[in-house]
Simulated scan of single mutants.
Amino acid sequence: MLDEQRERLRTVLAQQRHPLLFVTLSGSHLYGFASPDSDYDLRGAHILPLREVIGLREGAETHEQHSNDDGTEVDLVTYDVRKCFTLLLGKNGNVLEAIYSPLVIYTTPEHEELKALAMRCVTRYYAYHYLGFARNRLKQVSHQQPLSIKSALHTYRVILTGLHLMRTGELEANLRHLNAVFRLSSVADLLARKQAGGDKAQLEEGAVAPYEAEWRRLLGDLEQSVESSALPVKPDAQAQADLNDLLIRLRLQTV
């Protein structure tokens, strides 16, 4: 990202009511196939003050803000830190990807602590997040005619991210980096067409079947990887305890 783009996105954060733990860029920019007309998807965590979590009137666990500045659409979603940590332990790949996104818009020393702990909470059952996401995308494909190239790339991205995580224990959300490992000619072709045609580029009528067959093959590989993965079956107990301590410290900072 250019520094001016990052600073422009930071102006959105200045409007937030609660202190932030981190905010990163997700969506097509993180996945490696953004176009000039792509929206900016910001994801992160905010810190509800202690008085808003121990009383009868609880603060909002989820904040959403949608804005359009001179044609640039920005979609910001943040979770309260407790919800963020709970989703992380609940095998939520979206939260995991937000924590580790290299496209950092706002960060704190505690975000670095979280990054040191989060991968120790990842288990082989994180595959079910990616399996569920991919299966839903395959259901949608049958109703999207013609299918956008962006949608096809998202389907590849989610399957390959899950498969790579199961096989290596490493999180990689960028489809270009993933395809340097998987070397799928179909992905390389779609990436080139998306770059040329932007977010509105579409596949030709009847062209979906070969991609769908490859998605189903890769989905089968992901299903099998659950049992063969070297990832643990439970989060690291000490990492969970350290997450709890981090949450308490973050809350106490708001007193």
Rank of each mutant, 00 (worst) to 15 (best):
L2S: 14
Q5K: 12
Q5M: 12
T11I: 08
V12F: 03
L13T: 04
A14E: 15
A14W: 01
Q15R: 12
Q15K: 11
Q16N: 09
Q16R: 08
R17Y: 00
R17V: 06
R17F: 00
P19W: 02
L25M: 12
G27M: 06
L30Q: 10
S35R: 05
S35I: 01
S38A: 11
D39V: 04
Y40T: 06
D41K: 01
H46G: 13
R51P: 04
V53S: 05
V53G: 00
E58N: 11
G59D: 02
T62V: 15
H63G: 05
E64V: 11
D69C: 08
G71D: 06
G71W: 00
T72Q: 15
E73K: 11
V74T: 12
T78K: 02
Y79C: 01
Y79E: 00
V81T: 10
V81W: 00
T86N: 15
L87W: 09
L87E: 06
L88Y: 04
G90Y: 02
K91E: 12
G93T: 03
V95R: 03
V95S: 02
L96R: 04
L96C: 06
E97M: 10
S101A: 05
S101E: 06
L103M: 11
I105E: 00
E113V: 10
E113L: 09
L114M: 07
A116P: 02
A118Y: 08
M119L: 15
C121V: 10
C121Q: 06
C121M: 01
V122F: 05
V122M: 04
R124I: 07
Y125E: 14
Y126S: 00
Y128V: 11
H129Y: 15
G132H: 04
G132M: 09
R135N: 13
R135L: 13
R135V: 14
R137M: 15
R137V: 09
Q140I: 06
S142M: 13
Q144L: 13
Q145V: 14
Q145Y: 12
S148L: 10
K150L: 04
S151P: 00
S151Q: 13
L153A: 02
L153C: 02
R157W: 04
V158Y: 09
I159N: 01
L160F: 11
G162W: 10
G162M: 08
G162T: 10
H164I: 02
L165M: 13
M166I: 12
R167E: 14
T168R: 12
G169V: 07
E170Y: 01
L171N: 05
L171E: 01
L171K: 02
N174I: 08
N174P: 07
R176L: 02
N179T: 08
N179W: 06
N179A: 03
V181Y: 05
V181K: 06
F182L: 03
F182V: 07
R183P: 08
L184M: 13
V187C: 10
A188G: 04
D189M: 12
L191Y: 04
A192Y: 07
K194S: 03
Q195V: 05
G197A: 11
G198T: 06
K200M: 09
K200E: 09
A201P: 01
Q202W: 09
G206Y: 10
P210Q: 08
Y211A: 11
E212P: 04
A213L: 12
A213W: 01
L218W: 11
G220S: 14
S225M: 05
S228Y: 06
A237N: 05
Q238S: 09
Q240M: 15
D242G: 02
L243I: 09
N244H: 15
L246R: 07
L247N: 13
L247W: 14
R249Q: 14
L250V: 06
T254E: 10
V255H: 10
